[in-house]
């Protein structure tokens, strides 16, 4: 079997804390003959072709790690993996501070047996890794919204961009509110020994907002082409370039262990977006 046919990357988006949804997705893929190799970007899962089998997956959150390398280099890693291996849980990969295990036993003892302890780890992880990004995204989108609201660019027919930034701002807030709602419900469930599943309406809401953003973007592109408004297209291309560069920096950042270097990468990421905004503004002013 050629390498191209043996490996395949699937895109499936989950909330960061949706460990039950991710586990079910991975177990479904195993029954279709795909075994997880690596989790890459937020929504990318790399699989290898295997015989269809019933595998059990477990996802655990370790707030003290920040990526796979920091997990593999951590002092207690071997001790932890041995402890997990004793009940049949084999390490697959780590993503941010999420560690993924698989178990080939028929009815394995779950990796996490205390919902309160598990919930505390998830909450710490979300506060450490997701909250700063949510705040940054919200700040960027609202800044763009108010900047466009009070500048003359609106009169040049780009009011639709206002809608994009308004929708994105609302989305980031609602996304985090969705987590807080789930967390509150999960605390109550954990007190009775249950782990609360992620609310499916939150996932539906995320999909709906993503669809709205895609639709608005498509309308902006079509409108810009029809009206020969190349300025908007150039600005949108700049945003895409900034996103690609940010993704590239994220990949590099994951290979770094040192704290201050990581912060430097985060700072450069913000600078890239600010540069894209500044370039966009300059181009608008030119035309």
């Amino acid at each position: 079997m050629s390498k191209e046919k043996s490996f395949k990357t699937f895109r499936e988006d989950f909330a960061y804390y949706d460990r039950t949804g991710m586990q079910e997705f991975l177990e479904q893929k195993a029954s279709e003959g795909w075994k997880l190799v690596k989790k890459q970007f937020p929504a990318e899962w790399e699989f290898i072709r295997v015989e269809p089998q019933n595998l059990h997956y477990a996802i655990t959150y370790l707030p003290q790690i920040s990526n796979e390398d920091s997990f593999l280099l951590s002092e207690n890693k071997k001790e932890y993996l041995e402890l997990c291996a004793a009940s049949g849980w084999q390490f697959v990969c780590a993503y941010k501070n999420m560690v993924i295990f698989l178990n080939e036993k028929e009815n394995p003892l779950p990796l996490e047996t205390d919902p309160e302890v598990e919930l505390a780890s998830i909450h710490k992880s979300v506060l450490k890794h997701s909250l700063p990004k949510t705040i940054l995204a919200f700040a960027l989108f609202t800044t763009m919204f108010f900047y466009l609201s009070f500048s003359d660019t609106v009169s040049k027919g780009n009011e639709i961009l206002l809608a994009v930034f308004a929708v994105l701002s609302i989305y980031t807030v609602m996304d985090f509110c969705g987590y807080l709602r789930w967390h509150k419900k999960a605390i109550a469930a954990a007190a009775t020994g249950e782990f609360s599943r992620t609310n499916t309406t939150d996932k539906l809401l995320s999909s709906l907002f993503a669809a709205v953003v895609i639709l608005i973007t498509a309308v902006v592109i079509v409108k810009s082409i029809v009206t020969n408004n190349w300025v908007t297209l150039i600005v949108m291309a700049l945003i895409v370039v900034a996103m690609v560069l940010d993704g590239f920096l994220n990949k590099l950042k994951n290979k770094i262990e040192c704290g201050w270097e990581k912060n430097l990468f985060k700072f450069v990421s913000v600078l890239i977006y600010l540069a894209a905004i500044a370039c966009g503004n300059y181009i608008f002013d030119l035309f």
Binding site: A58, T60, Q64, N76, Y80, L83, C84, A86, S87, W89, L109, P110, L111, E112, T113, D114, V117, E118, A120, S121
Partner: peptide, 26 residues
């Protein structure tokens, strides 16, 4: 982990992830 189960006649089972987190917490 097995000892916990033996000591409690199988009533209490502690998963390895939970045990690790509890040890860190304690």
């Amino acid at each position: 982990m097995d000892k916990v189960s033996q000591m409690t006649d199988g009533r209490v089972k502690v998963g390895s992830g939970t045990l690790y987190n509890l040890l860190e917490q304690f």
